[in-house]
Design a binder for these strands. Structure first.
Lengths: 218, 218
DNA sequence: TTAATAATTTAGTCTTAACTAACAAAATTT
DNA sequence: AAATTTTGTTAGTTAAGACTAAATTATTAA
């Protein structure tokens, strides 16, 4: 099945909304909002994707991805994350720069390219944000997530990804000096305002609870 | 200046036709033929490119690229050839597979990506087909073609193409074990009969002058 | 220099994927 | 249960960029 960049973007957005909400469905308006496209336009595209048996819904009903639609979306996620890994590991892009470029690269059509890239990167399991890279066979499971806010005082943990991946947040993280796989120790919890003091790379910083809740760790 | 994939393809085609013919101009029909698009459609796009000051022509006249159009085209060629080099050198694609994928990759918009890629590949000067890679500054000159017969003794060179592509000659080349981009050293020139001894892949063979004159190198 | 041929342009159509405005159905309030 | 609000759909428009057919200009041959 050969899809346009556009159709691929719809599938990816659907996948994102469905997986994020862990709800197995989403709605026209939500999708329109996410893509920044009018609901009317989205409605038109959904009709098309339905005739291609990639999404599944009836008039005024909720949207689901078909098996095939889901499979294609998973492969797009795989491509996106492999490219992010390439940009980060091999080309020295920073953490917050990889997404935008990978957004373009993921649409390149060549199975061989992805297989070779995967091998070149030595079959990575996580992208630079710590997200799991689906396998070639389409296996994709989301590991249970834990935030920095849940780690007991005194314990160590490792940064693997962030919840809010806005540029502003990512830049703040970078400015703090926190990098992917930074080893972090919880020095103290301030019960007064729920902030916490953490230590990494030999320095201590104080962060708010809101910040801690945005940082996923292992 | 932000161009669509389409506009970029037109500029690249124009550049190809103009540079190949070494004529500094081309025509609507020639361009249409090359792109596999009807002359009428090409005419429409040319109008658009003219208003963007990327091509230069008047009604019923010959087509030229403007300085800016040429500069953009050169950068596309640069991107294309850097990606081909990446696919060949790093991912292990064969030389006849790289073009199709590079055709897609060249449209990725990110100056940083190209700079980083160039550095990662250690600033290659030639792509896997032996073609020159334009510099970041847009310098692009086609070097005069050189045959194996012109390489001084002791020097290294790389096979890029052949002059005589008869089956007999190609079979002989293959039998010798010479492949595209084989790294060759000129061991010795026998002045008696102008034959030369070359070394590649750790083995030495003797070839006639006639043979050497049929092999282009870089 | 006129006729024939080739090259180029114009005019009008099609498809895709966006849009707005108006309408219809579903969900929520009162 | 009726009114209101939210959500989803339809209809009609627009912009690219392709197309064909027809018209125009250039070039070549007679």
């Amino acid at each position: 099945m050969d899809l346009s960049k556009n159709e691929e973007d719809y599938l990816k957005a659907l996948f994102y909304l469905i997986v994020e909400s862990e709800n197995d469905k989403t709605s026209t308006n939500q999708l329109a909002e996410y893509l920044g496209i009018s609901p009317a336009s989205v409605n038109g595209m959904l009709k098309k994707l339905r005739t291609k048996k990639l999404v599944d819904y009836q008039k005024y009903g909720k949207l689901h991805l078909t098996e095939q639609g889901r499979a294609i979306a998973v492969q797009l996620v795989r491509k996106h994350r492999l490219w992010e890994t390439f940009l980060y590991d091999k080309l020295g892009f920073s953490w917050d720069e990889v997404h935008e470029v990978a957004e373009q690269l993921e649409h390149i059509q060549s199975e061989k390219l992805i297989r070779k890239l995967d091998a070149f990167l030595e079959h990575p399991s996580n992208d630079p944000h710590g997200a799991v890279i689906p396998t070639e066979e389409g296996e994709y499971r989301i590991p249970p997530k834990k935030t920095l806010a849940e780690v007991p005082a005194g314990d160590f943990c490792k940064l693997v990804s962030v919840k809010d991946s806005s540029v502003a947040f990512l830049q703040y993280v970078t400015k703090l000096g926190l990098a992917l796989s930074s080893r972090i120790r919880i020095v103290e919890r301030i019960s007064f305002d729920d902030s916490l003091i953490i230590e990494f790379d030999g320095k201590q910083v104080q962060i708010t609870r809101k910040f801690a809740e945005n940082v996923f760790v292992v």
